[in-house]
Design a protein around this nucleic acid. Sequence first.
DNA 1: GCGCAGTTGAGAATGATTGTCAAAATCAGC
DNA 2: GCTGATTTTGACAATCATTCTCAACTGCGC
Lengths: 132, 132
Amino acid sequence: MKRNTWQREAVREALVTADGFVSAQSLHSTLRDGGSPIGLATVYRALSDLTDGGEADSLQSMEGEALYRACTSGGHHHHLICRNCGLTVEIEADAVETWATSVAAANGFTQPQHIVDVFGLCAACSRAAAEQ
Amino acid sequence: MKRNTWQREAVREALVTADGFVSAQSLHSTLRDGGSPIGLATVYRALSDLTDGGEADSLQSMEGEALYRACTSGGHHHHLICRNCGLTVEIEADAVETWATSVAAANGFTQPQHIVDVFGLCAACSRAAAEQ
DNA sequence: GCGCAGTTGAGAATGATTGTCAAAATCAGC
DNA sequence: GCTGATTTTGACAATCATTCTCAACTGCGC
């Protein structure tokens, strides 16, 4: 059975409120700072429940941390992430989907899964970086 | 100054010999098993030197480990990796390159970097899996 | 209110990776 | 070949994200 606890709700809420991708760690401190004495293990559990249920999205940052984000569209999509401020843009990538599938098939591979993410500096951060 | 030690050579050698992507850990045990009393820290150092120097390629597996492989072509390329046996095929991805660049630009992002890797089951492993 | 199975949380455990630092190995010059 | 300065090594500790453990707790159906 699946229970509804304020902890799970709090994690979902914090994830939706967060703007870009956030790490489990920072989500945890955000929650603690917001006055919720929630445990780190619980945050991890809630996050993996959410991702399993398709309500959240996860990816590995370039530094190797796992990052999470509330999933706006249920479907499959990819991300364009600002590596400075974490701003995230969801991108449609039909072209990449079909490319991945066909290149896999061409080499005899089956059950293709792909990791496709683009990191860069968003407009604002690019400007800020240029000014220095 | 950069010195040539047998340890560094051994790591390069082991990396070239390995067929697909290998983790630093397994590279280390392979070397120890092969009779080289090399230290784990040294393997990590050698690997990051190699990747910095463009002689090796690294990526994160789906399980979060860092995997390394000797880079055959100096240029930029992506990989199609068998998630069962580690067999790796280097793939040309000009289409993806330009897609990544243009989608980044379209959203005001600069300095795009992208992670594009396809995992699947190679022909042999697909067959083996089907037989069970 | 009761009982109990799912859930929590503090801390320990894990596992990959990086830092530390004394000892050993390498290279350049003699 | 020998010397000395300097880099590199390697055993071990430290770190960091994540997962596990397990006793205490709690939501939910009765």
